[in-house]
Amino acid sequence: MDKYINLIKLSVGTDSVDDLIDWQETHRLRFDDNLPRHVTRMWPKRDAEILKGGSIYWVIKGVVQCRQRILRLDEVRGEDGIRRCAIILDPEVIRTQAALKRPFQGWRYLKPEDTPPDLPKGRAQDDALPDDLNRALAEIGVL
């Protein structure tokens, strides 16, 4: 497979993976392609690498909890005329092992070797752990 890079982003205002899924379900209906997206001010300089298989890893409540494959990057302009990047996402949200992440602004690049592994399909359907337990287990490296 060609070399690719991922993005990592805080999911601000989201309390759980299910919250993220619900928000995306509600908002993606506004678009002709019916795909979820995240619009950001900055266009990734490494866009070619992202589009070779990258995902966006979502940090929820200080913990990386899931990812979505990035399908494409679209240029969009707001009512203010400013060029922005719409990161078009696969609707499938893949839960990952929990990994602590300190707050940061915007998005960052994330190398494949630095990403938390995906949870097995069966475990992804398990009930979500309470936030404090999820964080504590991530701190000691159990999840």
Rank of each mutant, 00 (worst) to 15 (best):
Asp2Cys: 04
Lys3Cys: 07
Tyr4Asp: 04
Tyr4Leu: 08
Asn6Phe: 05
Asn6Leu: 08
Leu7Glu: 02
Ile8Tyr: 02
Lys9Tyr: 11
Lys9Gln: 14
Ser11Ala: 15
Ser11Asp: 09
Val12Trp: 06
Val12Ala: 07
Val12Tyr: 10
Gly13Thr: 03
Thr14Pro: 00
Asp15Cys: 03
Val17Ser: 07
Val17Met: 06
Val17Tyr: 07
Val17Thr: 10
Leu20His: 05
Glu25Ala: 12
Glu25Leu: 10
His27Gln: 13
Arg30Lys: 14
Arg30His: 14
Phe31Cys: 03
Phe31Gly: 03
Asp32Tyr: 04
Asn34Asp: 13
Leu35Thr: 01
Leu35Val: 04
Pro36His: 03
Pro36Asp: 07
Val39Lys: 05
Arg41Cys: 06
Arg41Trp: 09
Arg41Ser: 12
Arg41Ile: 02
Pro44Asn: 04
Arg46Gln: 15
Arg46Gly: 10
Ala48Val: 11
Ala48Trp: 02
Ala48Asp: 14
Ile50Gly: 00
Ile50Tyr: 00
Ile50Asp: 00
Gly53Ala: 11
Gly54Phe: 08
Ser55Met: 06
Ile56Arg: 00
Val59Gly: 01
Ile60Tyr: 06
Lys61Trp: 00
Gly62Cys: 08
Val63Trp: 03
Val63Ile: 15
Val64Asn: 05
Gln65Val: 07
Gln65His: 09
Arg67Lys: 15
Arg67Asp: 04
Arg69Cys: 09
Ile70Ala: 03
Arg72Ser: 15
Asp74Leu: 04
Asp74Glu: 15
Glu75Met: 13
Val76Lys: 12
Val76Tyr: 06
Gly78Phe: 03
Asp80Ala: 09
Gly81Ser: 10
Ile82Arg: 12
Arg83Trp: 02
Arg84Leu: 10
Ile88Glu: 05
Ile88Cys: 05
Ile88Arg: 06
Ile88Trp: 01
Asp90Trp: 00
Asp90Gln: 06
Asp90Ala: 02
Pro91Met: 04
Glu92Leu: 11
Glu92Cys: 08
Glu92Pro: 05
Val93Glu: 01
Val93Gln: 00
Ile94Ala: 06
Arg95Leu: 07
Thr96Phe: 07
Gln97Pro: 02
Ala98Val: 02
Ala99Trp: 08
Ala99Cys: 13
Arg102Ser: 15
Arg102Ala: 14
Pro103Tyr: 12
Phe104Ser: 00
Gln105Pro: 05
Gly106Phe: 11
Arg108Asn: 14
Arg108Leu: 14
Tyr109Glu: 00
Tyr109Phe: 12
Lys111Ser: 12
Pro112Leu: 01
Pro112Glu: 01
Pro112Gly: 00
Glu113Gln: 13
Glu113Phe: 02
Asp114Met: 10
Thr115Lys: 04
Thr115Val: 14
Pro117Gly: 06
Pro117Asn: 09
Asp118His: 05
Leu119Gly: 10
Gly122Trp: 14
Arg123Thr: 13
Ala124Tyr: 00
Gln125Arg: 13
Asp126Pro: 02
Asp126Leu: 08
Asp127His: 10
Asp127Ala: 15
Pro130Thr: 05
Pro130Glu: 10
Asp131Gly: 09
Asp132Val: 08
Leu133Phe: 08
Asn134Thr: 05
Asn134Cys: 14
Asn134Met: 14
Asn134Trp: 02
Arg135Glu: 11
Arg135Lys: 11
Arg135Ala: 12
Leu137Pro: 06
Ala138Pro: 06
Ala138Glu: 04
Leu143His: 07
Leu143Gln: 08
